[in-house]
Simulated scan of single mutants.
Amino acid sequence: MAHGDITHIDIPVSDLGRAAGFYSDLFGWDIAEIPGFEGYPMWQAPNGISGGGLAPRDDRFTQPRSYVEVDSIDDAIEKATRAGGSVAAEKQNITDSSWWAVIVDPDGNYIGLFEGVVNPS
């Protein structure tokens, strides 16, 4: 994927098993826990490209969140804050070669940022 591509969509759920059954039956999504990401079942759409995760719902995570791939999370956060945005979740590791963060745009929309490679080849 390239800078600016939507790479992942998290859906907040209160019951991971119930949600996995619902989305799998409704959309034909392949949903499974991947080693190293237990408790965070990931979904893959039939097109083999679209995907995301089912994440525990909490007071700060109540709506689906898209993650946009960026060349540099640090640069994207700096640019977003200069343009009137803010940071909801600082840059955090996913793997040794990938990171995520969440910004808030001036209208209050939460947008996830993704940088790196999850499965380097």
Rank of each mutant, 00 (worst) to 15 (best):
A55G: 08
V87T: 08
K79A: 07
R60M: 10
D96W: 04
S72Q: 06
S98I: 13
R82C: 01
K79R: 13
G85D: 00
V102C: 10
P41K: 00
N109Q: 09
S86G: 02
I6D: 02
L26A: 15
G48A: 05
D15N: 12
D96I: 03
V104I: 07
D105M: 09
I77V: 11
I6E: 01
P41G: 14
I11H: 02
D5A: 08
W99Y: 15
N109M: 03
R18H: 14
Q92G: 15
P120K: 11
P46R: 05
D25M: 13
I31C: 02
G28D: 02
G48V: 04
D58Q: 03
A19P: 08
G52P: 00
A45Y: 10
G116H: 15
I11R: 12
I49W: 12
S14N: 12
G4D: 06
L16G: 03
Y23A: 12
G116A: 12
I9H: 03
R57D: 11
G39N: 08
I6P: 03
G52D: 12
V68R: 03
E38I: 09
G112F: 05
A80E: 09
D30E: 12
R82I: 02
G116S: 14
S86A: 06
I6G: 03
I11T: 09
E78S: 06
A83W: 04
G48M: 09
G108D: 01
